[in-house]
């Protein structure tokens, strides 16, 4: 394996390395005290950072296109991708941060229970599916562009912020079935969504002071990562979606 160590950071040429070998190497490096790993020529290797359980936080930079389940079960590490990501980013993630300089595929942040994900452009189907929060853990996803259908499906907790950058003025967001089955958490959307695009379980409510604070704090981070104009983003109306009932299906059953 072609690598170059420099103090506590290391560079790897991942071309043609099988994912298992690559992840072995990442784990070994982390165990040796390496703090930053730069992966070059990544083409589809899966489960990057999934092996790093119970290991002090490291940083991973990915150049290329990482494979599915990037940062699945991530336990506190920071992963930055310079390129697009495929399906399953941050699947059941526990802690840490994933930053995508591009778009991401389907089921982004599915079942995440903690940590943050920032995507510069849009995301595929079913982002934030069944994301939850528990006690002090509260996952946050910030998406710069828009999303495809079923964003926030079954969402049980956490926060999604959908910025709609790149949409034309007055153009509505793309997804249908937004928050279908949602029973916890919050989705903030900047820009236009038609009511037929919303799942039947969610409702639009007024933003509070607290909401604006959350948005501002996370948009700042987003803008910082991707070099965008914070004020321009914030200088726009947001809507807030929350589930309207904790048990929307109560009337479904007879006994």
């Amino acid at each position: 394996m072609n690598n170059l160590q420099n103090g506590t950071s290391i560079k790897i040429d991942a071309k043609e390395i099988f994912y298992k070998d690559l992840n072995n190497f990442i784990l070994d490096s982390a165990l040796k005290g390496i703090k930053k790993i730069i992966l070059n020529n990544v083409f589809g290797q899966r489960y990057i950072a999934s092996r790093l359980y119970n290991i002090p936080k490291i940083e991973i930079e990915v150049f290329g296109t990482p494979g599915n389940d990037l940062g699945a079960f991530n336990d506190g590490h920071q992963i930055t991708v310079y390129g697009n990501a495929q399906d399953g980013v941050g699947n059941t993630m526990n802690e840490g941060e994933i930053i995508i300089h591009g778009h991401a595929g389907d089921i982004l942040g599915m079942s995440a229970r903690g940590g943050k994900i920032f995507v510069r452009d849009y995301v595929g189907y079913r982002a934030a599916l069944h994301m939850k929060h528990y006690k002090d853990k509260k996952p946050i996803i910030v998406i710069g562009g828009t999303a495809q259908d079923f964003i926030g499906e079954y969402m049980a907790g956490g926060i999604v912020i959908l910025l709609g950058l790149g949409l034309k003025k007055g153009e509505s967001h793309k997804p249908n079935f937004v928050g279908t089955g949602m029973h916890g958490g919050t989705i903030y959307i900047r820009g236009v969504v038609n009511s037929f695009q919303l799942g039947k379980e969610v409702g639009i409510v007024e933003l509070t002071e607290e909401d604006h604070k959350i948005i501002e704090e996370n948009v700042k981070k987003y803008a910082n990562y991707f070099n965008k104009d914070v004020d321009e983003i914030l200088n726009n109306d947001f809507i807030k979606l929350i589930p309207i009932s904790k048990r929307p299906y109560g009337k479904l059953y007879v006994y």
Binding site: F43, G64, Q86, D87, G124, Y125
Partner: peptide, 27 residues
């Protein structure tokens, strides 16, 4: 219609690519 299987497309001048994943296209 509810995209239960993945597909990515890409173009570069005259070439069109359609693939289960993006990585092989970039490769």
């Amino acid at each position: 219609r509810v995209r239960l299987r993945p597909l990515t497309a890409a173009v570069n001048s005259d070439m069109l690519y359609i693939s289960s994943e993006e990585a092989p296209i970039r490769l």
